[in-house]
Structures are given as structure tokens and as C-alpha cells.
Write a protein that binds this DNA or RNA. Sequence first.
DNA 1: CCTCCCTGAACCAATATTGAGCCAATTCTT
DNA 2: AAGAATTGGCTCAATATTGGTTCAGGGAGG
Lengths: 241, 241
Amino acid sequence: MPEAAINGLILDQIKATQMPKLVASDIATALKKRISSGEWVENGRIPPERDLASEFGVARNTMRRAVSFLEDDGTVVRHVGRGTFLTAANPASMAAVVGRMEGTSPADMMEIRQLLEPAAASFAATNASAMELNAVREAHRIASESQDMPTFEHWDAEFHHRIFACSRNEFLKEIHNLMRILRNQAPWFEMKKRSFSEERRSIYCEEHQAVLDALLRRDPESASQAMLAHLKTVQRNLLGR
Amino acid sequence: MPEAAINGLILDQIKATQMPKLVASDIATALKKRISSGEWVENGRIPPERDLASEFGVARNTMRRAVSFLEDDGTVVRHVGRGTFLTAANPASMAAVVGRMEGTSPADMMEIRQLLEPAAASFAATNASAMELNAVREAHRIASESQDMPTFEHWDAEFHHRIFACSRNEFLKEIHNLMRILRNQAPWFEMKKRSFSEERRSIYCEEHQAVLDALLRRDPESASQAMLAHLKTVQRNLLGR
DNA sequence: CCTCCCTGAACCAATATTGAGCCAATTCTT
DNA sequence: AAGAATTGGCTCAATATTGGTTCAGGGAGG
């Protein structure tokens, strides 16, 4: 526990004893302060009512009413036998998010790709080092020369990945990693197999070439546009619209 | 109040906060910390459950549940008779992605928010039901009327969340959930605390109002623009550029 | 006197932890 | 190769923790 927090507690206590009337709503705001100072973010759980009550020097009934305010706010949820939890900040919900993501539809994801990938291409055109651009070009070359679908698939994905890699935005890179993992799962695999053809492969390669050219010219605007055009083709092929 | 009594209080406080209740989820986070500090990287093996249990002073059953958390999010795999092993070697696993995301900078995230949230607002203007729009308006109203910072914080976040909720894109919604969780963690707290002021709050409210108006007019283009303007304000306040 | 809020206490129901034992897969020792 | 030791998987009953609820009383302010 940080020293500042302890001091805060002490101050609260002294204030509390100087001003003997501590009512539920006051306690509720004190709790909110401690929550928004990040006090209980770790594992998102706040202490049991009985502990809080004795800590604040009030009866459990009062503390219950105080916590009820937070519950009404939606700041907190309570479970009998388990405890009281912050709604926003618990790491457990991270797993839940990822779980739900696994069920999202390819259509939804393609929509978001069309937001993120052009931006990534644009960032890359501005920020990439010569070496990184070479890596992109290399991925494109291998994909173009590949003979079978799995190899093409792999280097196609790698091409996109390497563009994200030089976007200089860690968060964007990780979102793309997420998408990449999701795309390697069941519903996508069928879809990709169905939609693959030699003709489409050569179209993809041309479009990749356009993106690569724009990157090499350091032209963010046309990189973005070329990527968007490519994704629209992919979407059409994958989802048939 | 006599000084001795104050000291008593202080001691009580420290005692109370130094002795946290150890439950399975707490142990899980403690384990994660030790793992990420490189404790057991050598041959990637974690001590047997029985040892860990006695080390943490809990029953083996409890330790088993704790380790199960790690197993669930893919941090670890267990083999009967052999032991429990780290899986961290695989950078493409969901768990690894999530782990790295926790370390992304607010600046990077704000950049991505400026891509996604205007789009979400635009989708929402087109797709939202009347009831959903009412929910957005309600969040805005409560935020505007809130008296203290934590309440405002909460309903501010809720406003944004409800816009995503009516974007009709599950994947987008989940990405926003991720951002929301990350924003409730350590590095953001300082920043938010530092940047808050009554004046800024009222500016945020006005900007929210502009977004809301555009949504109610079912005008995707201006919803998107209003949201972008708002995010630029937030970014300026948060990051000082 | 009345109202409102807090106190203190007891009990309930849901959930978690304990402690113990046994099984099955694996590894180590003889 | 056979047996002992280690290790995760599993079950069960007893106990502890925790939020939910109710009730009788006290004290401050109208």
C-alpha cells in the first residue's frame, strides 16, 4: 500500500473524529475517492463490508447503505459469499472479453479491419525504417512466388503483420495480433478455403504491390487508400458482398 | 482528540491494510506477478501445488483453484505426474497479447481511440434504436449533473460505452471493453487525477452534448466529427499536446 | 412527541476454504 | 523390469467467510 494512501486514510480518520457525524452518503463518497485513486484495482475486489465498517468506525448497517450507493451507481457489484467487486477494472473480465471475441463474426471483424489497417499503413509510411520496409517487401515477394495455398496464406498474413509492426503503435499492433489469432480459428478457416482461387491470389498480389509501392514512396495517403481497396476486395471475396 | 488515540488509529489502519485476506484470486495474481518477474523461467516449471500451498499458507484445494485461473487464461499448462509449466514462450497466445496490452501507453491508445470511437459514433447514428439512444442521453444527463469527480468519471465512461453498445458491431464493442479495462489500470489513474478540473468537466459535457445531438439527428457524419473533436480535447488534456 | 438515522445484534443463504483421502499418470530408484 | 515417490485430478464433509435481512434500541433535531 502506497504511503500516500495510508496518509489519506489517516486524514480521513482524523477528519472523521473531528466531525463525529459520519453518515452513509459521506462514506460512499469516501469510498468512491479510494476507488478512483486506484486503491483496489488489483483483482478488482473491495474488502468485505464488516472490515470496511470497522475500518471506518461505523456499524455494518451503515456501511452496507454506503456500499449500496456505489451499487446503485453501477460502480460495484455484490455477490453473496464472494464479495464486492468493481465493475470496470477487474482483470478477470479481460478473459471474458477475449472469450466473447472468439465468437464475433467475420463480417464485424472485416469492418474494423477497414478502419485499422489503412491507418496502420498510413503510420507505417511515415514511421517505418528502411529495414522494416525491406521486411515488408520480402514478405510480399515470398507470397507472390508461393505455389500452394498454405504458404501464400502464411506470407499474406505476414505481409499485413509486418506493416502493423512498423506502425509504431504498440496498442494497434496488439489488436492486430488479436485479430490474427481469431482469424486462425474455426469459422475463418472454412471461409478462407472456400474463397481461395488462383485468380484471386494474383489480384491480392497486385493490391499488395500497390500498398508496398506507396509505403516505399513514403506516401501515407495512398498507402491508406491502397490498403482500404485491398480490404474491400478481401471482404467481397470472403463474405460475398 | 488525544495523540495516543490517533496513533492507535494509525496503527490499526496499518495493521488492517497489511494483512489482506488471501483468497484464490489473490493468490492467482500473486503468482502472475512472480511469474512475470522471471521467478520460474528456468525450465519453465512451477513448484508443485502442495509446496506452493504450504508456502502461501493455504490448503491445496485453494492453491489448485488459484493455479486454475492461470490455466484458464493460458499462462500455464498442467500435466499429471510431471508438474505445471509456463506457456509464456508462445507470443501469439491470447494471454500473451493481453499481457502486453496491459503495458501499452496511453498515447498509443488515444491514437486508436481516435480511429475507433468516431466510427462507433457514426455506426450508432445509423443503427441505434430509440431505446439505446435514450440510454446514451441518460448517461450524459447523469454525468452532467454529477457533483463529484468519481461519479462524473463513471458516467462519462458509461456514455462512451453506450455509444459503442449501439454500434451493432460486436468486435468493436469488445475492443472498447478492452480499452475500458486498460484505462482502469495503474498508469491512467495518475493521469486522470492530474488532468481533472471543473472547467474541463464542463467542456467535456458540452462536447458530449454535441455528439448526442448528432446521434439524435441520426447524422453519422457529424456524430463522427463531434466525437473526434471530443477525443482531441481529451488527448490534449491527458497528454498535454 | 415524532422522525430520521445510526448502532448493535442475530440469523439466513450463497459461496469459499479447509483438511483429508484416494486415484492416475509420470518419474526416479533399485 | 519392478516398485517407490512425486505430482496433478478429484471428491467429500465440516467450517469459515460474506452479502442479505430483520429487529429493537438510542440519540439528535425538528
